[in-house]
Each structure stands twice: as structure tokens, then as C-alpha cells.
């Protein structure tokens, strides 16, 4: 970071650090224009609509028992699903990076399926699998477990969509681990378990947390794959995004905007948390 003398020719020049590369004005301007028109303006419109209710009005919507329970279900089940996705995601990432076995590349490619498969398709497929007469639903029903049309169904759908996030955030880091450290640890007499928990795992924690946060954020907002498999029963299996759709159908724009704003706020916080985790990890471990 050498201090370069600043030519005081234009505002733009003082804004950015000088460079011989052209095109800053146009590319930066275009970026801001698109961002403003497509993302920021509409989101501002949403917040403006919600703020029409006032803070107390938003609070009233948020604490309405049905809304509160939908938010609780969305956030609660999503957290649980993200937890499970993170755990299995870690296992999958570990297996895919560390072990060689036939079909490994195929399995690796399959991890991204939930990204590529449209959510509505995933929704009807999951519903047909887990319905009481479905391929997986029937045996589960005999065990007395009902998946479709209960919060368990929401959980399954959320694990489905969250899994790739959990795998893909830790996978590159597992690949980067310096094997010599593990070997050193082993030579110094640590058991494999101790090596894993004391040497291998700690530097991976930020990535696991990031994966968790991403899966969580995605699960909270998910709609398409869930509505087909959740029972959509108020207080039991009604998710917040569905409640927004219902509020719109009831012509309650303010209420819908309020729920949306609450969810948006939490999205912001999740993104912020991810950035903080990454900043902390950069300080602590020197990489993200």
C-alpha cells in the first residue's frame, strides 16, 4: 500500500486509486445502476411498504401467534436441517477429498444436483417419495413415522437444498490441509482421533460455519420444494414464505411486507455473520 500522489483532476480519480486500466467509470456506473434498479430499489420499496405500518405495527405482525409460529418453524427447522446438512456435508466432503473409490467423480458431481434441479421438481419428487404410499413413505409409515405433510417433510426438503452448500464450502479446505501436520501429529504419538479433533478440525470450523449459515439462509427462504411436501397447517407446518403468499391472497400487503422485511433483516444478519466468520478466519488462520 504505497501512498501514490493523487492527481486532482476529477472526483472519480479521487474516489478510486489511479490505474492505467480504463473503463472504471462505465463499468462501475453500470454495476451501480443495475444493482440499484434491480435489487436495491425493489427492496427499498418493500421496506417502505412495511415501514408504513411503523415499528410497532411490524412488531404486532411479528408477534401475531400464527406469524410467530411460522417464523419459528422456518427458522427452527432450517437450523436443524442446516445442522444435519453440515454434519453429513462434512462427512461427504471428507470422503470425496480424502478417499479414492470407484465412482467418486460421479458422486462428486451428484452433490450439486439440488443446485441444478428446479425446486418445484424437487418438491413433487420428494412428495411422491415420502407420501404414505410412496417408495420411502410406505415403509416409514409402517414404522409409525410420517414424513410428508409434517414438519419432518419440511426438514427433509431443507436438508436436500442445503446439502451442496455444506459440502462445497468445506471441500476445498479439506483438500488444502497440509498432510505433514497430520503426520507430525501422528509421529508425536497422537491417536488418529486426537489428530482429527485437535489438529485437522479446528482450522475447518470457519468453513463449516459458513456452510451452515448458507444452508440455513437458503432453507429459511425456500418455498418451491417445501410447499408440496409440508402439510401447510397453521402452527404446525406452515413456513414463513407460504404465509407471505397467503397474506398476499388475503390482500394484506402490509402484513406480507412486514414478514418479508423481517426475513430480509435476518438474511442480512446471516450474510453479515458469514462475512464476520470469514474475516475472523482470515485473521486466525490466514485464509477463508
Amino acid at each position: 500500500m504505497v501512498e501514490t500522489p493523487r492527481p486532482k483532476t476529477s472526483l472519480l480519480r479521487t474516489f478510486r486509486r489511479p490505474s492505467v486500466i480504463p473503463g472504471f467509470g462505465i463499468s462501475f456506473g453500470y454495476t451501480l445502476t443495475c444493482l440499484g434498479l434491480i435489487v436495491l430499489l425493489p427492496l427499498a420499496g418493500l421496506v417502505a411498504k412495511a415501514s408504513g405500518l411503523g415499528l410497532s405495527g411490524i412488531w404486532e405482525v411479528a408477534t401475531d401467534p400464527r406469524v410467530a409460529s411460522a417464523l419459528r418453524i422456518s427458522f427452527g427447522v432450517s437450523a436443524l436441517a442446516a445442522l444435519v446438512a453440515s454434519a453429513f456435508g462434512f462427512l461427504v466432503a471428507w470422503v470425496l477429498t480424502r478417499y479414492r473409490f470407484p465412482g467418486r467423480k460421479l458422486v462428486d458431481a451428484a452433490v450439486d444436483l439440488p443446485f441444478a434441479l428446479p425446486t418445484a421438481v424437487a418438491g413433487i419428487a420428494l412428495a411422491s417419495l415420502y407420501a404414505p404410499d410412496g417408495l420411502l413413505g410406505a415403509p416409514l409409515a409402517r414404522l409409525g413415522i410420517q414424513v410428508a405433510y409434517t414438519p419432518v417433510g419440511i426438514f427433509i426438503a431443507m436438508v436436500f437444498i442445503g446439502l451442496p452448500f455444506a459440502v462445497r464450502t468445506v471441500q476445498p479446505l479439506i483438500a488444502e490441509i497440509d498432510k505433514e501436520i497430520e503426520e507430525a501429529s501422528a509421529t508425536l504419538g497422537a491417536t488418529r482421533l486426537v489428530t482429527l479433533t485437535k489438529v485437522v478440525l479446528p482450522p475447518l470450523i470457519p468453513a463449516v460455519l459458513t456452510g451452515f449459515a448458507l444452508a440455513f439462509a437458503r432453507g429459511v427462504g425456500e418455498y418451491g420444494s417445501i410447499i408440496f411436501i409440508a402439510g401447510n397447517l397453521p402452527y404446525v407446518s406452515e413456513i414463513a414464505p407460504l404465509l407471505i403468499v397467503i397474506k398476499l391472497s388475503e390482500f394484506d400487503y402490509g402484513g406480507a411486507a412486514a414478514i418479508a422485511t423481517i426475513m430480509l433483516g435476518i438474511s442480512f444478519l446471516t450474510l453479515l455473520a458469514i462475512n464476520l466468520i470469514q474475516a475472523w478466519s482470515r485473521r486466525r488462520f490466514g485464509y477463508v
Binding site: D133, G231, S249
Partner: peptide, 17 residues
């Protein structure tokens, strides 16, 4: 046990599921 958003959703839940 289930409240679908439309009559069709309910029929599918009852008849198909």
C-alpha cells in the same frame, strides 16, 4: 391435519397422497 391453499391441493392430498 393439512390445510392446502386451494381446493385442488386438498383433493390431491386426500386422493393421491
Amino acid at each position: 391435519p393439512v390445510l392446502d391453499t386451494g381446493a385442488r391441493g386438498s383433493t390431491v392430498t386426500f386422493a393421491q397422497r
